[in-house]
Amino acid sequence: MDGKKLVKMANEIAAFFAAEPDRRAALEGVASHVKRFWEPRMRRELFVCFDAGGDGMSPVLLETLAAHRATLEPAKK
């Protein structure tokens, strides 16, 4: 799927939760949102972008993907 678009969408989610003063809670918010609403192939693609250097990803998003990779990355097909 279009990686650039997914990064844009994920950044917008991160921007919402970034307003949460407690950083850990913010990251958890982003992770849980992506887990609850994103179909596995979207999450898989997001990690492809992440592994390719996370181009264009906001700091909150980068931190979330690093911290919550285990729950967010779907099982291999």
Binding site: D2, R36, F37, E39, P40, R41, P74
Partner: peptide, 18 residues
């Protein structure tokens, strides 16, 4: 147990070939 595709995601996945 995993969420499915939403309409705009379906469009993107269609263009993507999956």
């Amino acid at each position: 147990d995993e969420p499915g595709l939403r309409i705009p995601n379906m469009f993107d996945a269609a263009i993507d070939g999956s």
